[in-house]
Amino acid sequence: MTEQDDWEREFDHRWASSAEHKEPSARARMLAARWKESPPDPAPFRADPDPVVPRRSSWLSTAIVLGCVAAVIVLLGYAQLHGPY
């Protein structure tokens, strides 16, 4: 028998998928046992934990970014004019 045959026999996904009974994972069994004693509170799907606090205006950050870009452009122009060439 070749190594390929051993690999296919060990990891035969079609055979595993066709099994009549599938055992739940350890986490699923743990949660089922825990929830049997005390079921979880109902919660909406992807509920926000806290209300969102409104941020400050984004104009300040936009002005800072544009100012930095302008400063880099000016510095590159200055370096090109007064460079060694």
Results as ranks from 00 to 15, higher is better:
Q4K: 14
D5V: 11
W7V: 13
E8K: 12
H13D: 15
H13P: 08
H13V: 15
R14Y: 01
W15D: 15
W15L: 15
A16R: 14
S17E: 12
S17Q: 11
S18F: 08
S18L: 13
S18W: 10
A19D: 00
H21V: 15
H21I: 15
E23Q: 05
P24M: 03
S25M: 03
S25N: 06
S25A: 05
R29G: 02
M30P: 01
L31D: 06
L31K: 10
R34Y: 07
W35V: 04
E37F: 11
S38Y: 10
S38D: 11
S38K: 11
S38G: 08
P39S: 02
D41N: 11
P42N: 05
F45Q: 07
R46S: 03
D48E: 15
D48C: 13
P51G: 08
P51L: 08
V52F: 15
P54G: 08
S58E: 14
S58F: 13
L60I: 10
L60C: 10
A63M: 11
A63I: 08
I64L: 02
V65N: 06
V65Y: 10
L66G: 05
G67K: 01
G67V: 03
C68V: 14
A70D: 01
A70T: 02
A71K: 02
A71P: 05
V72W: 04
V72P: 03
V74S: 10
L76R: 07
H82N: 09
H82K: 05
P84R: 10
Y85Q: 15
